[in-house]
Amino acid sequence: MRVLTTTGIFSVKHPKDGDELVYGLTPASQLLVGSSSLAPFISLPIHGVFVSPFLGLGSWLQHEHSSPSLFEMTHGQTTWYMNDHDPTFSALFNEGMACDSGFIMDIVITSCSDIFQGLSSLIDVAGGLGGAALAIATAFPNIQCSVLDLPHVTANAPASTNVKYIAGDMFDGIPSANAIFLKWVLHDWGDADCVKILKNCKKAISPRDAGGKVIVLDIVIGDEPSSIKHKETQVLFDLFIMAVNGVERDEKEWRKIIFEAGFSDYKIIPVLGVRSVIEMYP
């Protein structure tokens, strides 16, 4: 409890006359309780499957750059192979991402509603169970929203929603749409893979004068961190994403893959804490 109070997870009051300490919720821990709890999302990075690889960090650092990821060295398979073949891990991952979508998308839609104005169709690429797409479709009923994900994911998609689910692979191709949405996808991949994904996105969208664009919700390192907690979060995500050979990028690194993929321009809009929206234009 001393650790948790020092880091701001709980508050503590020191009563007089030797009574027991009284602990309370803080804004951070309040996010973990109630109907809108972020517990499923927080459970993902602190689950043993992600924590255990760091026990072998010293050995991994002694390998050559081309060595398997820290996650793969520990488990003998990549994160994405495990997600495809282990139903328990897949459920943990998809529930965590759906929980995060329920939280962050309300903020994105409220503070950045203009990025969705004028769109007629949108595909949420690697959108999982469709939390983000459903939030967009609810807020903007004129936008025809779809989710593209692997067949085993779309097979478990919720029924009776106004979101269409498409089985496919973003590395093979993306169906045509006015706009493409990518939430916390590109930071999972190295530059070459990101350029391939973005090239497929560019092929799928309308021309710029018809409103075509790619909308990315991701971390931009160094993008106006307003407090020490934001800086801590940025570097901790650096450490976490390193385990799967992902990359958290600053603006220079984002610009590199954006232009290599053939886009003509981009715009970064800070949203909440360490996360920003990046609009990419063909």
Rank of each mutant, 00 (worst) to 15 (best):
residue 140 F to L: 09
residue 99 C to E: 02
residue 86 D to G: 00
residue 111 S to H: 13
residue 209 D to T: 13
residue 122 L to A: 04
residue 163 V to P: 01
residue 168 G to N: 04
residue 175 P to N: 11
residue 107 I to K: 09
residue 166 I to E: 09
residue 167 A to F: 09
residue 166 I to K: 06
residue 230 H to Q: 02
residue 145 C to Y: 00
residue 142 N to V: 09
residue 219 I to N: 00
residue 129 L to E: 03
residue 168 G to W: 09
residue 85 H to D: 07
residue 106 D to L: 08
residue 95 E to K: 15
residue 226 S to V: 10
residue 190 G to W: 10
residue 87 P to C: 07
residue 97 M to R: 08
residue 155 A to Y: 10
residue 195 V to W: 00
residue 214 V to T: 14
residue 99 C to V: 00
residue 91 A to N: 14
residue 184 W to N: 05
residue 180 I to P: 03
residue 144 Q to P: 01
residue 113 S to K: 12
residue 137 A to G: 12
residue 132 A to E: 06
residue 194 C to G: 01
residue 227 S to C: 14
residue 122 L to N: 04
residue 175 P to R: 04
residue 229 K to L: 13
residue 230 H to I: 00
residue 212 G to C: 12
residue 142 N to H: 14
residue 141 P to T: 03
residue 133 A to C: 05
residue 102 G to Q: 11
residue 140 F to P: 05
residue 198 L to V: 03
residue 90 S to C: 15
residue 114 D to F: 10
residue 183 K to C: 09
residue 162 N to S: 15
residue 132 A to S: 15
residue 188 D to S: 04
residue 110 T to I: 05
residue 88 T to W: 08
residue 123 I to D: 06
residue 149 D to F: 05
residue 208 R to V: 13
residue 127 G to P: 02
residue 94 N to M: 13
residue 115 I to W: 03
